[in-house]
């Protein structure tokens, strides 16, 4: 039995059934493994790896400069906000910034459909998880690291963004949004 000592010579050749099964399993393993790099090449959506190291204070400076530069203004000249968070409308093709902090996503990005942007994602306190709805796309925001996601919005509308990495007691209230205009 399985818990008794095996026969003195247990390394006998396997039966045909087992050999066939191993061959099938290995073919399965090799096939799926082969497709890992192949999907990366022929697929259209891969997790990016472009990353830069910088201090949270440096990232916050970049975000503030970005908001000053592209903030949407009211007729009165005031910066347009939604529930206190400024709305920013950067031109297509530009570098845009999204900062996680306990417990908001800052700022609100207003993008144009079909334009491509380089989205810089990071956090100035603890780890946060960017989760874009209803698409359900998820990427990590880590302190000290600027993660660059190249994005092209494919449809217009408002896309809520949640935090899906536990970030403290207000975690479930951390909801921001991305607006995509036609």
């Amino acid at each position: 039995m399985a818990f008794n000592l095996p026969e003195r010579v247990w390394w006998k050749p396997m039966h045909t059934e087992e050999k066939v099964w191993i061959v099938l399993c290995v073919i399965f393993g090799l096939t799926t493994f082969f497709f890992m790099p192949v999907w990366h090449m022929i697929g259209h959506q891969n997790p990016p790896s472009e990353t830069y190291k910088l201090l949270p204070s440096q990232f916050a400076d970049k975000v503030n400069t970005f908001v000053d530069q592209y903030a949407v203004k009211e007729a009165s000249g005031e910066v347009k906000t939604d529930k206190g968070t400024p709305i920013v409308h950067p031109p297509g093709g530009s570098d845009i910034y999204l900062m996680g902090k306990q417990w908001i996503w800052y700022p609100i990005l207003e993008l144009e459909k079909g334009k491509t942007y380089r989205l810089h994602l990071s956090t100035i306190d603890v780890e946060h998880g960017l989760s874009i709805y209803p698409l359900n796309m998820n990427f990590m925001a880590l302190p000290d690291y600027d993660y660059v996601l190249t994005i092209t919005p494919g449809e217009a509308g408002e896309f809520p963004i949640l935090c899906n990495e536990f970030c403290g007691i207000g975690h479930h209230k951390m909801v921001g949004k991305i607006i995509v205009k036609e």
Binding site: G29, T32, F33, M36, N46, S49, M140, Y147
Partner: peptide, 23 residues
């Protein structure tokens, strides 16, 4: 979906080393 890790690293590990643990 973390920053700071390279694509080859992700591809190698996502494939479980020829999926031998799955085998």
């Amino acid at each position: 979906v973390d920053p700071a890790l390279t694509t080859p690293w992700k591809i190698w590990n996502t494939g479980y080393v020829f999926h031998l643990a799955v085998v």
